[in-house]
Structures are given as structure tokens and as C-alpha cells.
């Protein structure tokens, strides 16, 4: 996983919870079917309009609620490039690191607007807004997670730790 991500912004507010990202009633369906319903409670056309590499920018407490990794699964299936938020719910943040969905916490996301082109440096926790020519300093990734993020998540990290080389190729 590259630690630099550039993409176009879809903007949302506070408390985008896991029931919004991945509604419970569709969780037993295959990933592609679940993905059609991502965010539909607040933005019914999200799955149709989002393009590979687009970035979700939101307010406080993104991903609150459930521990369901289907939230990351549907966003990855839609090829969302990254999520930037003022703050994340704890389990969502952790799951994102584990599955290699890039996430960055920047205190004030109100300066970023829908349609902006932004570039995220995951390791440094910084965001450059190409549209507005502004830089936002966020929270630097904790040191013990840098390796995991660079490798692309927990599975390749474990593969390395356990000395299994094959799985690294299969992961991505």
C-alpha cells in the first residue's frame, strides 16, 4: 500500500456510523451486493457516483458503533482511496489499519470541501489540498503501526512475522 494517496473528495458530517456505512440487513450478502447499499441511509447514490481512488472526508466520530469489518470491506470494494475525518471511532480506526484501508485524522476537516482534490501522507498524517493550495497537519501515525501500514495491513504483517512469504502475493 502506498502511503501517499491522492483523490477527489466526498464530504460528510459527524457520526457516520457503521450501520450507515454497512447496514446490518445486507451483511449476509456477497461483498458486491453489500457495497451497493454503502452509505445509502444518508446518500442513496453513493455507490453509483463514487469512483476508484475517491476520498471520503467526514467530521467527528467516523465509524462509530459495530466492530463489523464489512464497513471497510464495502469501502474497499468501491475502491475508496482513503478516509479522512476529524476523529474516528476506535474499532473502526484499528480495523482500517488492519485491512489496509488508509485513514488519517485531521482535527478540522471543515476546510475541505466536496469535489476538492487532496493528497494524504499517511505516515506523516498530513493532507495537501491541491484545489485550495492548503496543508492540514493531522495526527502522525503511531510508530508501532508504521510497518503494518507500509506492508498493507495486518495479514501481510503477520505473514512476515510468521515467515510465510506466499500469502503476501495473494493479499493484494
Amino acid at each position: 500500500m502506498s502511503s501517499i494517496i491522492r483523490g477527489r473528495v466526498w464530504k460528510y458530517g459527524d457520526n457516520i456510523n457503521t450501520d450507515i456505512i454497512s447496514p446490518g440487513q445486507y451483511m449476509s450478502l456477497p461483498a458486491e451486493k453489500q457495497a451497493e447499499h454503502a452509505m445509502e441511509a444518508i446518500d442513496p447514490s453513493f455507490s453509483e457516483k463514487v469512483r476508484p481512488g475517491d476520498i471520503i472526508v467526514a467530521g467527528k466520530n467516523f465509524g462509530s458503533g459495530s466492530s463489523r469489518e464489512t464497513a471497510q470491506m464495502v469501502l474497499k470494494h468501491l475502491k475508496v482511496g482513503a478516509v479522512a475525518a476529524s476523529s474516528f471511532a476506535r474499532i473502526f480506526f484499528r480495523n482500517s489499519i488492519n485491512v489496509g484501508l488508509p485513514v488519517v485524522e485531521i482535527a478540522d476537516t471543515s476546510l475541505i470541501h466536496e469535489g476538492d482534490e487532496i493528497e494524504i501522507n499517511l505516515i506523516e498524517g498530513t493532507v495537501w489540498n491541491h484545489t485550495r493550495k492548503e496543508e492540514y497537519r493531522g495526527t502522525k501515525l503511531p510508530e508501532h503501526l508504521v510497518d503494518m501500514v507500509k506492508l498493507g495491513g495486518l495479514e501481510p504483517y503477520l505473514a512476515k512475522k510468521l515467515g510465510i512469504s506466499k500469502s503476501q502475493e495473494e493479499v493484494k
Partner: peptide
């Protein structure tokens, strides 16, 4: 505490 399914893989293995 709650963890994700991928994290559980690590717990199960190690």
C-alpha cells in the same frame, strides 16, 4: 473489547 475479523486472524494464529 471488540475487535475486527482480520485482527481475530492474528489472535487465532498467534
Amino acid at each position: 473489547t471488540g475487535i475486527g475479523s482480520t485482527e481475530m486472524i492474528g489472535v487465532l494464529l498467534t
